[in-house]
Design a protein around this nucleic acid. Structure first.
Lengths: 216, 216
DNA sequence: TAGATTGTTAATCGATTAACAATC
DNA sequence: TAGATTGTTAATCGATTAACAATC
């Protein structure tokens, strides 16, 4: 009973909490870049637009990172959150679809430095084969299975049309890929063996449209 | 009191409900394309991965779209949801940033046919000025204010580096733009006069990383 | 009519906020 | 020490699920 409060072991963390951690993290990194050292939950909450209570409650799921009367050391807290999230953990990825969206993702500057490495890029467009994208040479999609056979890949990124996603989803599952980062507007059926994280751009626009409808 | 149940007037609709409507809509359009006519809340729920209760509860915020003993007419319901969301309402948009992400968005096939029209594209890269993107000729960013002065624009799309977003956010506000669709990893400060819808790609990847950490 | 399925109310569950003792 | 701020518990709020009368 003594120090129960410092270990929330076993308890499943709500996904709503997890989704706020990257927001805290981004803000803390910003502050760090401006050479700030400490921040209270109240100040951080104000910057982000949540309540101080929520920040303290969220962090308490993982441990005690603050100091009463002082607040949080920004460097320590950002490192702690990075560890919780698995940033710097080194994930290997393959990208399927070297279109504009795939290119944008492959060139996103922060991913590589945070341990997300794209190991190979595939496309079905013959005219793109052999071209460079980020550090990779674009390969024909029919080389994918050979590649997965001999390389240990954690995450598959899908930036292809909706119709083709389920096919690659199945291949990913077959070769033991653990997570799919899906940009196509479909609900993938993975049988829960593979984690799917969706970025549904068009759903986001529709949500905005709803909120604007009265005014436009 | 008589027919109160058919009008949930005045009551604010939770955003969690709104965010599910595009998912229902996409599924219904798929079914429609496969020439299906009717569906029950139970069947729809199964396809999407929610409870039938939730679908009925969600829809009840907006009216009675089903028929007891029958279910929902797919065509009617998808049209109803489109109306609720404001799809086909015709929104005018400007795109700031003609990089890979901006290009991907401008070329997204479904937006135009659903009433989201990009009226102009701006970039600060001289080498891109004059090139075509979708239906637009890319203009230099210093033409933006003149353009907004004489054109009625509903939505500003930001696909530019984080540092520059607040500047354009302010310009948008000044010229009466109602909504910002922001792809940069920042929290924009709009003073709540302008609706902001964020697509935070890197936060999505971090959330996936967390869920994979134990397994990888 | 009998069976099916809605729309809605009530019950449950979970997430957020408030409050405060602990303590730096 | 006195002031500040955490970590945590309890209270509130909101969202989801279950249940069922209404009715097609």
């Amino acid at each position: 009973m003594a120090n129960t409060q410092s270990r929330k072991n076993e308890k499943v963390i709500p996904i709503s909490v997890i989704k706020r951690l990257p927001i805290y993290y981004r803000c803390l990194v910003n502050l760090l870049n401006r050479d700030m050292e400490r921040i209270s939950s109240r100040e951080l909450a104000e910057k982000i637009g949540v309540t101080a209570s929520q920040i303290r409650q969220d962090l308490s799921h993982f441990g005690n990172f603050g100091q009463r009367g002082y607040g949080y050391n920004i460097n320590d807290l950002s490192n702690a959150i990075a560890n919780i999230l698995g940033i710097n953990h080194n994930f290997t990825m393959v990208l399927i679809g070297a279109g504009n969206l795939g290119t944008a993702i492959a060139n996103y500057p922060n991913f590589k430095q945070r341990g997300f490495q794209i190991k190979a890029v595939f496309d079905n467009d013959i005219s793109k084969i052999g071209m460079k994208l980020s550090d990779c040479t674009i390969q024909h999609i029919n080389k994918l299975e050979d590649f997965l056979q001999v390389n240990n890949i954690d995450i598959g990124i899908l930036t292809i049309p909706a119709e083709e996603t389920q096919y690659f989803c199945n291949i990913f599952k077959e070769y033991g890929i653990k997570g799919i980062w899906n940009f196509a507007p479909v609900s993938l059926n993975t049988g829960n063996q593979v984690m799917v994280e969706n970025v549904h751009i068009s759903e986001s626009l529709m949500t905005l449209a709803y909120r604007l409808k009265e005014e436009c």
